[in-house]
Amino acid sequence: MEESRHERLSCLAVCAGAGGLALGLEQAGFDPVLLLDNRPVACETLRLNRPDWNVLETDLLDFVPEEHREVYDVDLLAAGLPRVKASAARVRENSAEELRLLEATVMLLHGVQPRALLVENLSELADRPAYEPIRTEIETELEHLGYQHRWFVVNAMEHGVPQDRKQGILVAFKGDVIHDFVPPLPDTGPPLTVGEVLGPSMAARGWPHAAAWAAQADRVAPTLVGGSWNRGGPDLGMTGSKRSWARMRVNGATVADVVPGPEDPWDASPDGTEMVKLTVEQAARLQGFPDDWSFAGTKTSRYRQVGHATPPPVGRVLGFAIRAALGRPAPAPPVRR
């Protein structure tokens, strides 16, 4: 019995993106039998980092689980879905693509029959009145299929990520397992700051202002936003986010190719014009990705993947909470081939 408690569990990851959620779940003891995403560059990133993962490039709406018997009866179906818009609750004809993907994920329960479901989306989906019609529709289908559910919100800054990033979470379990589920508890210590996390990388090429910059970047980052896949270049978010970055003397309007070097200027004054720029790799650190996780594609597509990802530490704590509810609290390490 004790040996079975340490076993690694199985999962199906849909809309896997750059693998943030899957990586966190792997750290919590869930190995994917299949990951699917419709973006070639995201699939390339997954294969680049985990050549042994079974990656399928396809749209979730076209996925037929009966053609992939390895997904049947997995322990967990996990989905890091595009953000659902509140307007989708009012327009049922030609409903938004994001809502269709949410509905398709729930319908996968028919063919996959997982022991647990994990869906990550925007925080408002979990608790705002505007999304009540969507929640009711999802809950009705879950109950019909014999799953009991819970909605809640997590903030990445409370789980080792230096970023104020709220996420709406839906978990569901077959039978009455939901009564054993406890959402992840926030860390007891203060959150990591941008300066703590990025200070060493800012100094990597001999930038003389690295220590001074890190000392004043003494807060968490605003939410990183991947932006539209169809237009624009990489930047760190909307106008409000750019203002927050400017207070840390970071130019949020663009992303750098390399960290600053010995000759790069910096102005610490609040209204100074010389600000530092972050690289894609530094943005990935702010999402909690390990340094050895690589991203395929151009700078813009790499940043898009980072910004849209679920922070791996959030995936990890959610995975541990789900394992505990399933009676498997202590995972063995993964076996890399």
Rank of each mutant, 00 (worst) to 15 (best):
residue 168 G to L: 02
residue 275 M to N: 11
residue 274 E to C: 08
residue 220 V to L: 02
residue 279 T to P: 10
residue 283 A to N: 06
residue 225 V to L: 14
residue 256 A to Q: 10
residue 278 L to S: 13
residue 196 E to D: 08
residue 287 Q to I: 06
residue 250 V to A: 09
residue 242 K to W: 08
residue 167 Q to L: 14
residue 279 T to F: 03
residue 293 W to Y: 07
residue 224 L to E: 08
residue 255 V to P: 12
residue 223 T to R: 12
residue 271 D to N: 14
residue 259 V to A: 14
residue 177 V to R: 14
residue 267 D to A: 01
residue 165 R to C: 09
residue 176 D to P: 04
residue 233 G to P: 11
residue 293 W to L: 09
residue 171 V to S: 09
residue 253 A to P: 00
residue 197 V to A: 01
residue 249 R to A: 13
residue 169 I to K: 01
residue 288 G to I: 04
residue 208 P to K: 03
residue 280 V to L: 08
residue 279 T to G: 08
residue 272 G to F: 10
residue 257 D to T: 14
residue 225 V to M: 13
residue 276 V to E: 09
residue 255 V to A: 11
residue 215 A to T: 08
residue 179 H to W: 09
residue 283 A to P: 01
residue 260 P to L: 07
residue 254 T to V: 10
residue 197 V to E: 01
residue 210 A to I: 06
residue 241 S to G: 09
residue 237 G to V: 05
residue 199 G to D: 02
residue 236 L to W: 12
residue 185 L to F: 01
residue 185 L to S: 15
residue 184 P to V: 09
residue 202 M to S: 03
residue 186 P to L: 02
residue 292 D to Y: 00
residue 242 K to S: 05
residue 289 F to Q: 06
residue 247 R to F: 01
residue 177 V to I: 14
residue 240 G to C: 04
residue 264 D to K: 08
residue 215 A to M: 06
residue 221 A to Y: 04
residue 284 A to K: 01
residue 245 W to M: 05
residue 272 G to T: 12
residue 233 G to F: 05
residue 253 A to K: 14
residue 194 V to R: 00
residue 170 L to T: 11
residue 277 K to C: 13
residue 247 R to A: 15
residue 215 A to H: 09
residue 242 K to D: 09
residue 276 V to F: 07
residue 237 G to D: 08
residue 274 E to G: 05
residue 200 P to K: 04
residue 265 P to A: 06
residue 165 R to T: 10
residue 278 L to I: 10
residue 260 P to H: 05
residue 194 V to K: 00
residue 179 H to M: 08
residue 255 V to H: 08
residue 188 T to Y: 00
residue 212 A to Q: 14
residue 291 D to Y: 00
residue 247 R to W: 02
residue 282 Q to S: 13
residue 245 W to A: 08
residue 227 G to Y: 10
residue 200 P to F: 04
residue 274 E to F: 04
residue 221 A to T: 04
residue 214 A to E: 06
residue 265 P to K: 11
residue 179 H to Q: 15
residue 217 A to M: 11
residue 247 R to E: 15
residue 213 W to R: 01
residue 226 G to H: 05
residue 189 G to S: 06
residue 231 R to Q: 14
residue 192 L to D: 00
residue 197 V to Q: 02
residue 229 W to C: 00
residue 255 V to W: 05
residue 263 E to A: 13
residue 236 L to C: 13
residue 271 D to Y: 07
residue 262 P to D: 06
residue 188 T to H: 05
residue 274 E to P: 01
residue 260 P to F: 07
residue 203 A to Y: 11
residue 192 L to E: 05
residue 169 I to G: 02
residue 226 G to K: 03
residue 275 M to Y: 00
residue 287 Q to N: 10
residue 267 D to S: 06
residue 247 R to C: 10
residue 283 A to H: 00
residue 170 L to A: 12
residue 261 G to S: 09
residue 289 F to A: 10
residue 291 D to I: 02
residue 234 P to D: 11
